[in-house]
């Protein structure tokens, strides 16, 4: 039963995923249709360019925040990360099955922290803002 709870530890090693994005032009990494479309809208990058960006450490920062079970594949977890690049804060989720990686989501964050949000938070901490 344990695997059905959300996990605060990544299921996969991010570095292994990153390297897979660059190996043979990301042959072993599938990008789901919605993720590919969102990446094109956000970055003006096609699928191959997106994988190259991830492989070459294009994110300014990438932070794990959750791992949740895949709805359709029993025993498979999806790791979720928040990334930052320039002024953009985004979300990427991926999983691995049979040596194949899949990027399930890739989009700009709307609900989580943003740079402006962080600054507001700091001001609130300093009690400049209520």
């Amino acid at each position: 039963m344990e695997e059905f709870f959300l996990s605060h530890r990544p299921k996969y090693d991010y570095e292994t995923f990153r390297k897979a994005c660059g190996k043979n032009k990301g042959k072993k990494v599938n990008v789901w249709e919605n993720a590919a479309e969102d990446a094109e809208r956000l970055f003006r990058k096609d699928e191959e360019a997106l994988l190259d960006f991830i492989y070459k450490k294009g994110f300014d920062s990438i932070t794990f925040f959750n791992s949740s079970p895949h709805r359709n594949i029993k025993g498979v977890f999806i790791d979720e990360y928040e990334f930052r690049t320039g002024g953009i804060t985004g979300y990427i989720a991926f999983f691995k099955v049979n040596e194949n990686w899949s990027i399930k989501s890739f989009h700009q964050s709307e609900t989580r922290f943003t740079l402006l949000g962080d600054e507001i938070k700091k001001l609130k901490e300093k009690k400049v803002l209520k």
Binding site: K25, N30, W32, A36, D46, E47, E48, A49, S102
Partner: peptide, 21 residues
């Protein structure tokens, strides 16, 4: 339909999209 994966699973669109860009 089994695992829900949807997309360019065999990397067939990359060249077409890149050419358009």
């Amino acid at each position: 339909p089994v695992c829900g994966t949807t997309g360019d699973l065999f990397k067939e669109n990359v060249q077409v999209i890149r050419k358009a860009y």
